[in-house]
């Protein structure tokens, strides 16, 4: 079976004030289905950019990003939005919940794009919130939750559509030690129990230790070690 994620000769640069800043240089990488991998590297090394390319929220200047057989770098914006809705669960460092929506409504948000009935949506949302242990807080607004709980709601939102891969950009970066531990346990559980392919970007060596494999990026290049 081919790897679920294949990065082939990917380069990416940004233009800032007419200056072209190279971020990734000819990256080649593969991730097998069901793996839990961590990307580490210093700030500005390009790890978040690589994660964004894999999650389909950014496009490479050169090369291919193939996820589950689809070259997502060739998709247009509209097709890419649909692809993300069906295949990727994204966990952000700062949770990024919609403040005017309850935990239930935040988790339900991606399901509004599906053809599920209201009852089916409710069932999916309750299941996701149960997995993250927040079924009893579903009517709470983000401001009524702790940071760890907010991140768990964000994880529920990421898994509610049953995506192929889960990507996390510093998912524990804004949390205290205990909350971070809870989130890492949850990610491990999603990987082991629900067979999700998990890829996280982290600065935290303890977080990275939970991964099956750690990849290092430095100045836009994949390196053996830092």
């Amino acid at each position: 079976m081919p790897p679920v994620i294949q990065i082939q000769n990917v380069s990416k640069s940004y233009t800032r004030d007419s200056f072209e800043i190279p971020v990734l240089n000819n990256i080649n990488m593969e991730i097998e289905e069901g793996e839990f991998q961590a990307l580490m590297g210093p700030s500005g090394s390009g790890k978040t950019t690589l994660l964004n390319l894999i999650a389909g929220i950014d496009k490479p200047n050169k090369g291919k990003v193939i996820v589950a057989g689809t070259d997502i770098s060739a998709l247009n914006e509209s097709a890419l939005a649909k692809w993300r809705a069906n295949n990727v669960g994204f966990i952000f460092q700062f949770y990024n919940l919609i403040p005017v929506l309850t935990a239930f409504e935040n988790v339900e948000l991606p399901l509004l794009l599906t053809k599920l009935s209201k009852a089916e949506r409710k069932k999916h949302v309750e299941t996701a919130l149960e997995i993250v242990g927040l079924k009893d807080r579903m009517k709470h607004y983000p401001k009524q939750l702790s940071g760890g709980q907010e991140q768990r709601v964000a994880i529920a939102r990421a898994i509610v559509t049953d995506p192929l891969i889960i990507v996390g950009d510093e998912p524990t970066g804004d949390l205290d030690k205990n909350s971070a531990e809870e989130i890492l346990l949850l990610l491990e559980r999603l990987n082991k129990e629900f067979k999700k392919t998990v890829l996280i970007v982290t600065h935290d060596p303890h977080a990275a230790d939970r991964a099956h494999q750690i990849k290092y990026i430095d100045k836009g290049d994949l390196v053996e070690a830092l």
Binding site: A81, R84, P110, L113
Partner: peptide, 16 residues
């Protein structure tokens, strides 16, 4: 702006 970025990430299109 951030929320719209989140919604786009979740798959919400230009139409939405």
């Amino acid at each position: 702006t951030r929320e719209y970025a989140v919604m786009k990430t979740l798959g919400f299109s230009a139409k939405h």
